[in-house]
Computed example of a mutant assay.
Amino acid sequence: MRIKLSRMGWNNVLIFASMFMILLFNYSHRMMTQGHESGETNTLVGANTIIQSIDFNGIKIERLGATWRSVSTIELTKPLNTDLIVETWTQQPFVALQSPL
C-alpha cells in the first residue's frame, strides 16, 4: 500500500512532524523528572567519588593516606575535626532549582 501525496501534502507532513519533534524535545525533561520519586537523595559529591582535598579560604583539608590533615593560614582557636567536615561535605543533600516558566 502506497501513500500518494502531492508536494504540498508532503510539506505539511514534514512541518507537523517537525513541530511534534520540537514539542517532544522541549517537554521531555518534564517527563523524565516528574514522577521520579525515589528514596535516594542527590548529594553534592557522588558516593563513589574520591576526594583528594577541600580548599576553603585559608583552610585546606588534604587526604593523607586513609586520614585527613588540615593546613591553615588562619590562626585557629581549636583543632578542626577533619573527618566530620569531609563527611558533612560528602553527604550534603541538594535540591536543583527550576527556573520559572
Rank of each mutant, 00 (worst) to 15 (best):
N11P: 01
A47T: 02
S99D: 08
N48E: 00
T43W: 04
Q98Y: 05
N81C: 12
G46F: 00
N42S: 09
G58H: 09
Q92W: 13
S72A: 11
I59V: 11
R30I: 14
N11D: 11
N81D: 14
L64R: 11
L80A: 02
M31I: 09
Y27S: 07
E40K: 07
P93M: 09
T49K: 07
F25T: 04
L24T: 13
D55F: 00
G65A: 01
M8N: 06
G35T: 06
D55Y: 10
I61P: 00
S72N: 07
P79C: 05
L84D: 05
A17W: 01
S38T: 04
M8R: 14
P79E: 05
S70G: 08
A47D: 00
S99K: 15
W10A: 07
T67E: 14
L24W: 14
I51Y: 07
M21N: 12
E62K: 15
A96V: 13
Q92K: 12
G9S: 07
I59T: 10
M1T: 03
R30D: 15
T90I: 09
L23I: 14
E37D: 01
T73D: 01
F20P: 01
P79W: 07
S18M: 04
S38D: 07
T33P: 06
E87N: 05
T77K: 11
N81L: 04
L23R: 14
N26T: 03
E75R: 07
N81M: 08
L80S: 00
T90C: 08
L23V: 15
M8Y: 15
L44S: 03
G35K: 08
T33G: 05
G35F: 05
T41Y: 02
R2T: 03
R2G: 03
I54R: 12
S6Y: 14
G39R: 00
S72L: 11
L76D: 02
N48D: 02
M21W: 10
M31E: 14
Q98L: 09
Q91A: 09
L23N: 12
G9M: 03
G39F: 01
L24Q: 11
T77V: 13
K78S: 02
S6Q: 10
A96C: 11
R30V: 11
N48W: 02
T49R: 08
L84I: 01
L97C: 06
Q98F: 10
H36I: 04
T88W: 05
R7G: 01
G39K: 12
S38C: 06
L44Q: 05
M1W: 00
S18A: 14
I3K: 04
